[in-house]
Design a protein around this nucleic acid. Structure first.
Lengths: 212, 212, 212, 212
DNA sequence: CATGAATGAGTGTTCATTCAT
DNA sequence: CATGAATGAACACTCATTCAT
């Protein structure tokens, strides 16, 4: 029955950026960047329009913060962990793809990737930001794994650049599917993402396998 | 006092909707739905802003009409032709993917697919239409080819449903790439689509190959 | 009792820019550039906010148009006429100053000059525009007259640059007085502008006069 | 248990209004009334935004206080000293004008005069105060000097009222110039104030000189 | 007294849509 | 049918002012 010692005001202040970021993620994913109104983000976070701009200087910066928090961070973490993976490269690749899905693709945050594809043309600066902080790091990671497999003799001397896309394409596809289909009336014959990823990874690993 | 039966004016009038649809296709693909201004569509079609709204009651209806008009045909044609292909299933798969790219993916019309994915959330009816008339038929076609390869002993008894996505994902991915990256600042490490498709198809065929 | 042949719409369209310009002049003079709201200009001109931007792409451009119409034009006309003046340079100078007052200083439009002084710091582009189109031409004109007087032997070899300011300062002063005092409660000991100008001009001409 | 009688805190507290006034003077002069943000004033005075409103109920009242504080003193001082000047009236006039510039026009405080003229329309009480306490006393002083010159036979029986303006106009003009042009892109053909004043004063003195 | 987090009214500009001609 | 002038709702961002702590 006794009140907590921390003042209401203070406690809230520390939470604001997080609350705003969360509200922004929801709305950006739901409606896209351009269609999301700054005031709506604020209202969903329980503050007024002015308060949003107290913490983020513009809608674009808010978006970048959302990307950093929800997209770039998991990617970066994944990269760190991948470096410590014990096991052969085929297993690593499969593990990476699955892990990417579990930590990112399956979450609300992956809606950001879908959104970026739609709006990149109209917001070049955001597109560059996303490319720099998300896409390029991810590609580098995949490249590393593929090269590791080739050097260890596990994979043939495949075309690394194109294979990177063979790895990433189904992941992107899943994300598109997830966020585009959500609007469809029926659930249709749903893909089972983890199963598909496992399947696809096996196909790739077999396809890249050294030996006649 | 009587005028000639066919004046230029009358012929033009009948073409109006088609000209508007064409102009709208160009602009929607180029700039997306929200960023395309109604007046620009009208101007490109050579009519005034008011005239556009004479033929389409709103920008949304115009968008729907553009999608409906441009999406169903190429798919239907592709399906017909694939049925007549002679050769083994691996070759057929590779040919199909390449051909799909050449006839559809590489053209302006593929912008429609990208649009659909981007805007599906805002146009549920369109999403349904698209799924029914484009995605499902395409899946059926791929399924046919895979089953043919399994039955002939060329492929292992792979998981057909998931493999369908392994086939389609990179194609969708290419389309997204093509239309999203066009606006990016530099050309970056550009994908070469046909090369990538060939590469990916080979990976898949190898991956599906009945082992020794 | 019969209606005019011209359509209402058409007639109004041609009048719009003028009506808007007039409303804008009133409001800019009354409240300054920053404090004048675009919508208020439109409303005073009897149109909606959107219509204003149909004719002027921005508030700044509207302001420039007001300057061109109400300030630069009379200055330019004055320059043309001054070139045709018959009479000695002292008379010309006096005539010019009086004429400037009658045609510009005494009118509402001179409020623009006052406004420019207040807001130049906050709107550098407008300040440059004003300097280029109003101040510099006016200075050139005065310089010409002074040089004419020196060459003809009517004036001593005075410092032309500084004298230009001796000519212009009281005119600017009058304008400030006129627009600043308008807000004062009482009329106080009002300056009589034309009388003052005549007086000041005589002082200057005497001061510049050749002969010991 | 008792604290020392004078702690730092208390001394600071008493200075607060003065510090705020000083900061406000700087900023109002530099950027004008509307463009000066309340928070910036507070920050420059080393207090928080809220504190400003503790001492001044609104930005407008702050502005009024700044004007009241900075405007009356220098004028009063100048008047006292002028009464003690030895020398002929032409020299006195020149000296007064130069001295006014050095002590007031050239200083930050002259920005107040400019502010007054710019904002007079929005602050009628200030305009009245300014006229009563600054302009009229200054006019009286100039009148005295002119009358002294006439009585001594040094000047003709000129129109004193108008000549007062001939004396003051260039000074006002210089102040406007100084504070308005500071923001302009280039230095243009800069006026040299003391040189111009000397020049103008000579022109006036010659113009007023009792001729042969 | 002092703070600074929070507010919300206010403003220039855009654009889908209407409708008088 | 066609036009294009006119509309007005919408939106990002600012800043004087308030008030709980």
């Amino acid at each position: 029955m006794s009140e907590p010692l921390t003042h209401k005001r203070e406690r809230r202040k520390q939470d604001r950026p997080g609350e705003l970021l969360e509200a922004a993620l929801d709305l950006f994913v739901e409606k896209g960047f351009a269609a999301t109104r700054a005031e709506e983000v604020a209202l969903r976070a329980g503050v007024s329009k002015g308060t949003l701009f107290l913490y983020f200087p513009s809608k674009e910066e808010l978006f970048k913060a959302v990307v950093m928090e929800n997209v770039a961070r998991p990617v970066a973490e994944g990269i760190t962990e991948a470096a410590q993976f014990k096991g052969n490269s085929g297993e690593l690749l499969t593990w990476m793809m699955l892990e990417w899905w579990r930590r990112y693709g399956a979450t609300k945050a992956s809606g950001i990737s879908k959104l970026m594809m739609s709006e990149a043309g109209n917001f070049p600066e955001l597109a560059d930001f996303f490319r720099t902080n998300v896409i390029l790091p991810a590609q580098s990671l995949v490249r590393l794994v593929l090269q590791r497999g080739i050097e260890s003799g596990e994979f043939r001397a495949i075309d690394v650049d194109n294979t990177i896309y063979s790895v990433m394409a189904p992941l992107i596809f899943l994300v598109m599917e997830k966020h585009a289909t959500s609007a469809c009336s029926a659930t249709h014959t749903a893909i089972h993402p983890e199963q598909f990823i496992t399947h696809h990874a096996q196909l790739l690993v077999r396809g890249m396998a050294a030996g006649h």
